[in-house]
Deep mutational scan, measured.
Amino acid sequence: HNLTITQGKLFFHYNPKLCLSEIHKMEEVSGTKGRQERNDIALKTNGDQASCENELLKFSYIRTSFDKILLRWEPYWPPDFRDLLGFMLFYKEAPYQNVTEFDGQDACGSNSWTVVDIDPPLRSNDPKSQNHPGWLMRGLKPWTQYAIFVKTLVTFSDERRTYGAKSDIIYVQTDATNPSVPLDPISVSNSSSQIILKWKPPSDPNGNITHYLVFWERQAEDSELFELDYCLKGLKLPSRTWSPPFESEDSQKHNQSEYEDSAGECCSCPKTDSQILKELEESSFRKTFEDYLHNVVFVPRKTSSGTGAEDPRPSRKRRSLGDVGNVTVAVPTVAAFPNTSSTSVPTSPEEHRPFEKVVNKESLVISGLRHFTGYRIELQACNQDTPEERCSVAAYVSARTMPEAKADDIVGPVTHEIFENNVVHLMWQEPKEPNGLIVLYEVSYRRYGDEELHLCVSRKHFALERGCRLRGLSPGNYSVRIRATSLAGNGSWTEPTYFYVTDYLDVPSNIA
């Protein structure tokens, strides 16, 4: 807008934040220059609390790290170098490059900038070799853009010569660093050979998330399962459950009422301010606690030095998902009996873990797994792929695949051998790939016309006998059925096997 004052003059007093240069501009645009008398524009009460600059400061050096910015700028000295009290560095987070010096300023003089007072450097006698002032900004957020400017702080001049310097606002972004852990990993099994893994992005990506790394490792069953005799009275049979499938998407929606109208769909109840505040506090606490764990609990591995020492970490090797089922080394339970199943799973520490690289999504279907087997899954978020990966501390989750139908069934015939004193040795093959492992066998036998009897055969007993022995049988026709019990439950009964026990007292003698 054009402003013209045809008559009258300007009068400025007691404006401590208004620089004289701005008042002189007002004289020019209003056409009143030359009308004012000496005392109409006070030299001592206008701009006496402001830094009124008329020179431009330029930054000469900028260096960044993930949490620091090192700045240096060209030296500046007023005509009387004693008038320079120091520099004021202003900075704040700036997602967009549209910041002005006066953003967030209120009537009390406060604003949204963080201000650092910096002492002037030592003055050199040689004007050509003056030290460049600077400042190291610490405690910054990774991968965050900051708006920065600097200006001088000078003393009051009796001659009211307006001098000083100020830089333009520059924008500097800190470097990326390792992201925080992925949030809320959930693993479920939808079949006997697959596990579905879902997660949420890290709360602090500290860069642009480029991919996720998912490692999985087959877990050995508890050692007590191999040692305890679950045929003993009072000892509860062990059981394991597989990871249940995901709930429906509708039930997972946030901010939804727990109660549904019987007449149909209901609208979600909005969260109160107290609920939102509580969630923010919980989120802040979780982030602080995660940072504490990362800094205190997890110790970084030592990389190899120039002395030739090897990095103890196993090298990563990509495998196809079809090879995942046989990740671990199978060892027989008892070496003397080769027909026992290889369900003991000690994992070799030198073995390469299978892994998958996930790009542009937060889910993965891990296939080719062994049925009813526990897996430990390790999830890392990465925001750099080359020249070397920059990934987060791992988040861990466990899951067990679903049982395989008929995996616990005894394959092959049940054979028998009759000894003296009416002892019958029953023999059968253990299931080759049971659900988890076989903890015991149930032997059901009966003599024709009598009630059915049951015998429990422990895992250890089966390994020693290759089956079991029935003792003290009365003469007669017998039928026997056997079924295995694994961590997933009972298998199917075998087809009945028949044998006849004679009275050993009636056996004919070869003595003449």
Rank of each mutant, 00 (worst) to 15 (best):
C266F: 09
E247T: 08
P354W: 11
L437W: 02
N360P: 10
N435W: 00
Q380D: 09
F499E: 00
F289E: 07
E389K: 14
I482L: 08
R313Y: 09
M427Q: 03
P508K: 12
K278G: 12
F337G: 14
G234L: 08
S243D: 08
L228N: 09
V327A: 09
P244I: 12
N435S: 04
V214H: 00
V331M: 08
E260G: 03
P332I: 11
V331K: 06
E282L: 10
V507I: 12
Y441L: 00
T303R: 11
S320I: 12
Q380N: 13
G234N: 08
D204P: 03
D323I: 13
T343V: 06
P346L: 11
R481T: 05
M427E: 13
P475F: 05
V297Q: 14
N477R: 09
S283Y: 14
H254S: 14
D291G: 14
A336F: 10
Q275M: 11
V324W: 05
L487T: 08
F246N: 15
H294M: 15
M427I: 12
S348T: 04
N208D: 03
V414M: 04
G308D: 06
S268K: 12
S284Y: 01
P244E: 12
P403G: 03
D506E: 05
C391T: 03
L470N: 01
N255Y: 07
R483Y: 02
L505W: 04
E258P: 15
K233N: 14
V214R: 00
S268M: 09
S398H: 13
S203C: 14
E495P: 08
L369G: 02
Y259I: 03
F462A: 06
N477G: 12
R316Q: 04
N477D: 08
F462K: 05
N208P: 10
Y500I: 08
D506I: 10
K460G: 05
T415E: 01
L232S: 09
F372Q: 04
E249R: 09
R353E: 06
W242Y: 05
H371T: 15
E227P: 10
R471T: 10
D503H: 02
S239K: 15
I209R: 14
F298W: 03
P245V: 09
T485N: 12
N360S: 09
F285D: 05
D323K: 02
S367L: 12
E290V: 06
V443H: 00
I482D: 00
N421A: 10
D503M: 05
K361D: 04
A220G: 13
Q275L: 07
T333G: 12
A381Y: 04
K236L: 10
L437D: 14
D250K: 10
W216H: 04
T502G: 09
V327M: 11
Q256P: 10
P403S: 07
D250G: 06
S342R: 14
G308F: 06
G306M: 14
E378V: 12
E265I: 05
S284C: 01
N206L: 04
K361Q: 08
